[in-house]
């Protein structure tokens, strides 16, 4: 027989609680509700017609390779807003091991100074 506590508190630390089983039940019921609501909508559409073509504001559809959006675009917002930071970092990124070791020594030195002062 399953102990009630095992069922109700599957995962719990002293400060965090998470019961995947209960969440699973919630998800199944919610999925059923959402599916019923969705089922009230119209299912049909005209396949292989103009309406299934991709919307490009009237621009012609090019080859797939030419229309591909690079995954690196995700970071564009970060690269753009932190340009000042990346420019500095790129200058530091020389590819020379001696430079990296120098940085390592400098950072360790700064840490020792901070720890010494505190």
């Amino acid at each position: 027989m399953i102990e009630i506590q095992d069922f109700l508190r599957t995962l719990g630390t002293n400060s965090g609680f998470w019961n995947p089983l209960v969440w699973g039940i919630i998800i199944v019921i919610a999925l059923l509700i959402a599916y019923i609501i969705r089922g009230r909508g119209k299912k049909e559409y005209k396949k292989q017609t103009e309406q299934t073509k991709v919307f490009l504001s009237g621009n012609p559809e090019l080859e797939k390779e030419e229309m591909h959006i690079k995954a690196s675009n995700v970071y564009w917002g970060f690269m753009e807003s932190f340009k000042w930071l990346y420019t500095g970092l790129e200058k530091m990124h020389t590819g020379n091991v001696s430079d990296y070791i120098l940085w390592f020594v400098v950072v360790i030195g700064i840490f020792f100074i901070i720890l010494g002062v505190i």
Binding site: A34, R40, G41, K42, Y45, Q51, T52
Partner: peptide
């Protein structure tokens, strides 16, 4: 919206395209 056609674009991955809105609503309700 329920009376409008549920168009699935020819470039789309149909099962993911249809499943994503359901996941969104289910996750939010939970």
């Amino acid at each position: 919206l329920f009376t409008k056609e549920n168009i699935i674009p020819e470039n789309a991955v149909p099962w993911v395209f249809n499943l994503a809105p359901l996941i969104g609503l289910v996750g939010t309700i939970s």
